[in-house]
Simulated scan of single mutants.
Amino acid sequence: MRDPGELYELTADAVMVPEGLHLVAGLTGFADAGGAVSQFTEYVLSTLDHTVVATFDADALLDYRARRPIIYFDQDHLTDYQPARLQVYLATDEIGQQFLLLAGFEPDFRWEQFTAAVLELIDHFKVSSTTWVHAIPMPVPHTRPIGVTVSGNRSDLIESMSVWRPHTQVPANALHLVEFRLQDVGATTAGFVLLIPHYLADTEYPSAALSALESTSAATGLIFPTDRLREQNREFVARIDEQVQENGELGKLVGTLEQRYDAYMEGNPLRSPLTDEDGELPSADEIAAELEKFLMIKRTRDDGSGS
């Protein structure tokens, strides 16, 4: 395997990083249901003081043809090229606690070398624990708290927070491999998989980001400002609830999901809260299409451009 150090460069600010910080990670590009990871990392970077301490080589890790960067066309010339970034930040939470944040795109290439590079950085900064978040769509209702599946070697978090513990094969992402290698060397690590309502998987669901923040707080003790996000979530849920009330099929879907969720959480011997019955519920695509149509109409009305 190539030298892991080829994939990243430390910045001048790297010397400012004290030993023993928590590393928090969230990478975008795969199954980011509800925009949980993208909202989570963007919100942290927009609300907390931070500085870049390491930058990964995008040319070595990113498939540009699959995930093209953005460049702006201003009438007759190009401006403001925005390359994809994968970086480690030194950030400070709401009460002054410092932590490291690994955020950006999920690598398309060189996963083993990238994983070795992350472990090298963890060793370099003497990281105390690594916590990462991921989100997948599941047939669960938006009217109940977002559940999580916890992996890693934090038995305290697994016992207190993991609501679904399947025996299954799943498509891996790069942070799965990082966690796997950290377990091999006995480093403290926890992964949170957020279980997002399948009919909201293609939206930017503020509750998903809130769940990511709350899970990270539970694992690290870090404190994040959430007032703005909670207000956005109240407005978002109000719109969804309005559509559910107006659409019988949506109401039937949510009601059935609520019954199954509640039965599972009360200890009913179901295999999971995700059991479905053939032909009873609209598909995720159908429900998402209905919601997107409703939200588009609602946005038009709110902007004053509708009748």
Rank of each mutant, 00 (worst) to 15 (best):
P83K: 02
L210H: 01
V88N: 01
D59N: 12
L100A: 00
G104L: 05
T55I: 12
A25E: 03
S151D: 11
T189E: 07
Q259E: 13
M296K: 10
R67S: 14
T203F: 15
P145T: 02
Q75F: 13
S305G: 09
R230H: 09
Q98C: 01
D32W: 03
H22V: 05
D278K: 11
Y72L: 15
W164Y: 15
Q97G: 11
S215L: 04
D49R: 11
I297T: 09
L182S: 02
F236E: 06
E9V: 10
V88Y: 01
V37C: 05
I287D: 10
L90S: 00
P137V: 02
H142G: 07
D32T: 02
G147N: 10
S307N: 09
S162A: 04
S211R: 14
G147E: 12
V170P: 07
V44A: 04
Q259I: 14
V148G: 04
A12T: 08
D3C: 08
R154V: 00
D49F: 11
V170T: 14
A36K: 04
S38Y: 06
V150L: 04
E242V: 08
R181M: 11
D262K: 04
L175E: 01
D76A: 10
L274R: 07
T55C: 12
D57P: 05
T275P: 07
Q82I: 06
G147A: 10
S162L: 01
H167V: 15
P83L: 04
V37A: 06
S160V: 15
V88W: 00
V24K: 00
P145N: 09
H50R: 07
